[in-house]
Amino acid sequence: MLPDPIDCVVVSYDSNTFIEENNFTESNRDDYNLKYVEAVNSSKLLNLVQFFNATEEIYAMETARSYMVSKRIKIIIAIPVDFSELIIWGYPGLIDCITDSSDIQKIQVNINAVYDSIKIFVSQNNLTPQFELNGFEEFTIPENYSSGYNNTIVLVLSFMIIGVGMVSTILIIVQEKPIARLLLTPVKRMEILLAKYITYISILIVQNISLVMTALSFGLYLVGTVFDLFLALFILGFAGLAIGIFISTLSKTKTQANQLFFATFLVLILLSGIFIPIEAMPIYLQAIAYVLPLSHGSPLITGIITKGKSVFGFDFFSLLGVSVVLVVLSFILFQRRKYEV
């Protein structure tokens, strides 16, 4: 089974006109770039999202890059200025390929897909298979920063923030005996749970500030803003709190809460897409994976750290949505929880 085609754009800098060197007449012979586009369209490994003629659209590359930042595409294929001329004169053809390097595991997959399009192009046009593919990695970590640290911190921050959020809250309802007695005061159940959320959100804010400061002081390469990173960690931590409090309101005993925590955390990790790509999972597991917070946490943080993306995107709102659902469920469960003194 073929993998899903990789979304790409082709930006062509190949000049529209060709000047005959013998008689200086102008003709329209720069058609190989369009033939290459046809080859891209024929490739089952690539999905051409858009073709830009950079000789007419001066912001073509900026637009293509913005597509990559917003995760619409994974590859930008750039056709250089004298692409057609080089092929006509019998020189090796040149293709520039810019891949999204924020997902290290997929760089080679992306390059292979571009090679596939070149193969088709050569075969369709009876050309000699002399092509050079210049690979450029977009969103790579500059040499003066540690790419190892940058790549690891994304995983560490995701796991840590959601894990700490869950661990600190799984027992707050199930273990706190005086809640039953507090309910014999004018205080409402909703107020008790709200107070818990406010307290743990305050702790989360302090925790996030220290995590961000520590990560930066250790030399984190951050393209996006500190505020965006903070917000991303906050929403991820909030999802952790929401899961923890949900488990606590759902459980009848401490043992049950602990077991539910381990089971949930295991599922979160396995379906996070960090160890097994979500695309490689069966459809029903993909559906579950996309609902779980960790599968959104890693792309969200990566996007901010390496691409400079704004926090307010699909991943953020997915996390917010999941958290809100869990918060509402925890309030309903707490309202129905039986307390007797």
Binding site: K177, P178, A180, R181, L184, T185, P186, V341
Partner: peptide, 15 residues
């Protein structure tokens, strides 16, 4: 509940 007080059997419920 404002007009009444309650002292449960077990202190761990109240403290």
């Amino acid at each position: 509940l404002s007009n009444i007080g309650y002292v449960p059997q077990l202190e761990l419920l109240n403290l």
